[in-house]
């Protein structure tokens, strides 16, 4: 009888199981649904950026806000400013696209979702990934995910601008479906931004002595509660921003046309 000892070479082997996974549940649903939803989001976003019907006074589509080019209609400009002159002929949304897109792309929730849904790394827990080599976020280019907090700073500004747009709509057209949609969108965009892991860290997560910083500790507690819902807020805000953007464009195109639109 063969005796297995601590030094036996046989002991150094994992169980040689050929199946990629022995899971019997529908583990493929999460990556598949993620892939479909995110692809739809990317397709819509690409179309929206190049679509020129982004303003229907007093509503401005979130994808085009802040509108910073002289090609923007007068009422769509942030505080009437247009720092980008006539030389800029591309869609105004392109000027600010990188900020919210970068925030979502480097977001810890979205990273989990697209690593699973698009890169299959891994597609699901305890399901082998198809890649032969893996270095994660330890090397270029994925090491750049570490700049997430800078996109967070930008997202705070964008969130405030969207809130300002909602306030303007509320002032100019208090009874309007578009106003309600912009307000709801601004609320969820800002909640998503505040629930960010980088926000949690900056608020007080980086401290080791909470007791010496009671105000920051309270803020950290608030952000931590939001952070627990980060995934839900990321998805809800994705749907609200697309919904709000599409609605404004439909109003601007005259497709949606009723008294309280």
């Amino acid at each position: 009888m063969t005796q297995t000892t601590a030094d036996s070479p046989a002991r150094r082997q994992r169980a040689q199981i050929k199946e990629r996974t022995l899971r019997t549940d529908q583990w493929w649903r999460y990556p598949l649904v993620t892939f479909i939803i995110f692809t739809a989001f990317l397709v819509y976003s690409t179309w929206a950026i190049f679509d020129t019907s982004y303003f229907a006074s007093p509503y401005i589509a979130p994808y085009a806000s802040p509108c910073l080019a002289t090609s923007c209609p007068e009422g769509a400009r942030l505080f009437g400013l247009a720092p980008f002159g006539d030389w800029y002929t591309l869609p105004p949304g392109l000027l600010i696209l990188a900020l919210p897109a970068g925030f979502r792309f480097t977001c810890y929730y979205y990273r989990k979702a697209y690593y699973r849904g698009f890169w299959l790394s891994p597609p699901a827990c305890a399901v082998n990934e198809p890649h032969g080599k893996y270095t994660g976020e330890s090397r270029f280019p994925l090491i750049l995910q570490n700049i997430h907090r800078y996109f967070f700073y930008a997202a705070i500004v964008i969130g405030l601008i969207l809130a300002w747009d909602a306030v303007l709509a509320l002032v100019e057209k208090p009874v309007g479906l578009g106003t309600l949609i912009l307000v709801v969108n601004a609320v969820f965009i800002n909640l998503y931004t505040l629930s960010c892991h980088s926000c949690r860290h900056i608020t007080a997560g980086r401290l080791n002595h909470f007791s010496k910083h009671p105000v920051r500790y309270r803020a950290w507690g608030f952000v931590s509660k939001l952070n627990a819902k980060h995934q839900q807020l990321a998805l809800i805000s994705m749907f609200t921003v697309v919904g709000a953007d599409l609605y404004v464009r439909l109003v601007a195109k005259g497709i949606v046309n009723f008294p309280f639109a």
Partner: peptide
């Protein structure tokens, strides 16, 4: 840096420790 925060560790933890959100990401 190898961790790509796909949260499987959190999913399987029998003590329901939020490993990814409360330890790895911080």
């Amino acid at each position: 840096g190898y961790c790509n925060i796909t949260k499987c560790c959190t999913e399987v933890c029998p003590e329901h420790i939020k490993i990814t959100d409360n330890a790895l990401i911080p």
